[in-house]
Amino acid sequence: MADQTHVQTPRRSINWGAIGDHTVLILGSLFMLVPLIMVVLTTTVPDVDIIKYGPQLKIGDQFDDNFEKAMFEASGFSGANTGMRMLFNSFVLGIGFALGKILIAMMAAYAIVYFRLRFATLAFWVIFTTLLLPLEVRILPSYEVVQQLGMLNTYQGLIIPLIASATATFFFRQFFRSVPEELVEAARIDGAGPVKFFIDILVPLSKTMIAAMFIIMFVFGWNQYLWPTMITTEEDMYTLVRGIKQITQTLEGTNVPEFGRANLLAVIAILPPVAVVIFFQSWFVKGLTESDK
């Protein structure tokens, strides 16, 4: 017995458990990754090749050509929905939505947490109830409201109704409540009023939280589909994600559908939010997992 244990030094033994773990993880990663890789590769080969062979694991030479078509050629009737235009609109929606939401949410959360307000609880519940009903279930009447306000095909019509939900308000309320009580007391004794406290202390303290919220809201805004589909009917207002529908429709019917162009637009629609999520991963994960507690 003693000899046997002596021979089996831990260094030599193969850790089957770890190999199993890695196998599962690699398979999982491939499952997530391969579809995108295939789509990316199709943007580099001639459209005819795709029809003949389908997506291949090879890199072709058509990327520049497809890029040119995707970004600067329009496919619609008015000629306004070039890739550049849609990319711009997507950024306006993503950034405008994120900034607007954070600003309004921080203000409201500040009022609810840091002021002696008789109807603070009422205000909280009025705001909070919006968490209950996603935009999707009240989409038609919301559309009518925007229509009546004459905000169809405008950026404000696109952005403001999306802000009417309390996710970020709730998140900042939770965060503000976790800020030590004594900080506002010390600041008051130090002679800081509500505005000073907010700007000098609370906003700098919330920097990470603001960043995390920005990432989540940017991705959320960028990825909006149903709402832009209804609100924007003019092609120069299309976002990339909204444009996907039109892109898929152009694949129908034609003899040689422009797969390269369409797929490249899809990749461009994916790229900015994915890049943000990957580069600011730790903030994003923190924001996501803490916002819903």
Partner: peptide
């Protein structure tokens, strides 16, 4: 007045 708090209440940033 000036006050010293239990958890110091220093402004962390």
């Amino acid at each position: 007045i000036a006050m010293v708090f239990q958890n110091y209440a220093l402004y962390p940033h």
